[in-house]
């Protein structure tokens, strides 16, 4: 079945989640993601799934932990200040190796900040966020269609690797409406067995879901299991979109909504005969370091990167690590409600 509809980013993520077989959603109101929660409140019960409005983000993520421990597809969504509160639970989910999907429709920070779009939660999403040595898989859509599609991938990867996955969008993407093609369930939900789930111990030894390792050496051993898993994810799950990468002398690097602006800048530069291209990371963790390696191997004399973000320089640090001094990197960012414009980008290039 293929159906074309006009829908906001927030609602597209919700619709995608229901079609991807999300069994349980818990959320707490926060702008600019409220349409997602409202869509789930209306449509999850219709699909015989569970919707709970939690008393806090702390409770919402812990409810997700309970549903995930039950072997169900579980999800929550929020924005910056609420995601900060969820870090406690996300660390526990990572430590208990429970899959789930967390949506962050980023707004301006720090603190209460404002409700304008921003990309200032990149560090929090990609570098762990909570306590302990862990990572979440982080996927960054730049269109409403992609937001819808990445929900399926997010759930599938979370299940495959037994880890929380994050959809990192921003207020612009959440609020804007675009036509999208709805596809019926293409998810890998049914293929995943969860023998570790807590469903009662009938005919088997009891299961324990925990992140606590008090015996000497046990926690170190467990951390090595996690690190091995992260190495595998880093190797296999890098995703990006490239535009004119083959012959480019200047490559703009941007993700999410900002990548749309960067794309316009690239088109303008091309019209003027400049060899410009776009590298848009889709997986922010793992960061697509492989493509940087490929580009630098075929390096032309003039190759340089220009990173633009709705932050004062977060993803650019991963670009610097990937490039490791082998090419020039320039940066332009705005945050706190400011959005880099095409003109501003072109001026700085």
């Amino acid at each position: 079945m293929r159906e074309k509809i006009l829908i906001s980013g927030n609602e597209a993520i919700a619709e995608g989640a229901i079609r991807a077989g999300c069994d349980f959603y818990a959320g707490y109101p926060i702008t600019p993601q409220n349409e997602l929660t409202a869509y789930m409140a209306e449509n999850m019960p219709r699909a015989n799934r569970v919707f709970v409005q939690a008393e806090s983000e702390l409770a919402a993520i812990s409810m997700v932990m309970g549903a995930a421990a039950s072997g169900r597809r579980a999800m929550t969504s929020s924005s910056g200040p609420g995601i900060s509160l969820k870090q406690e639970g996300i660390s526990y989910l990572a430590g208990a190796r429970l899959p789930c999907l967390i949506v962050n429709i980023m707004r301006g920070g720090p603190g209460l900040g404002n409700i304008a779009p921003a990309q200032s939660d990149y560090f929090q999403a990609t570098k762990g966020g909570g306590h302990g040595d862990y990572h979440c898989i982080v996927l960054a859509p730049s269109s409403v269609q992609e937001a819808y599609n990445l929900v399926f991938l997010g759930f599938d990867l979370a299940d495959k690797y037994r880890t929380p996955a994050i959809i990192l969008g921003d207020g612009m993407l959440g609020q804007m409406m675009e036509p999208i093609t709805i596809t019926s369930s293409a998810s890998g939900k049914k293929q995943v067995k969860k023998p570790w789930a807590l469903t009662g111990c009938k005919g088997k030894a009891p299961n324990i879901v925990k992140s606590f390792y008090m015996q000497e050496g046990d926690l170190e051993k467990f951390n090595k299991v996690l690190q091995k898993q992260y190495a595998q994810i880093t190797q296999k799950e890098q995703r990006f979109e490239g535009m004119h990468l083959e012959d480019s002398e200047i490559i703009l690097v941007a993700y999410g909504s900002t990548a749309r602006i960067a794309r316009s800048a690239v088109q303008s530069l091309r019209k003027k005969g400049k060899k410009a291209g776009l590298l848009r990371p889709i997986s922010l963790w793992p960061f697509p370091v492989g493509i940087f390696e490929d580009l630098l191997k075929k390096k032309k004399k003039k190759l340089r990167f220009f990173v633009t973000e709705m932050s004062y320089g977060q993803m650019v640090e991963d670009v610097r690590l990937a490039v490791n001094g082998r090419a020039r990197i320039d940066f332009y960012g705005r945050a706190g409600g400011g959005i880099p414009t095409e003109e501003e980008i072109l001026e700085r290039i």
């Binding site: 409770a59 812990s62 549903a67 406690e88 324990i208 925990k210």
Partner: peptide, 17 residues
């Protein structure tokens, strides 16, 4: 079968289960 919960969150985890 048993599940861990963060300090104070047992009833939220139990709600999810």
């Amino acid at each position: 079968d048993c599940c861990e919960a963060a300090h104070g969150r047992a009833l939220a985890v139990a709600t999810g289960i």
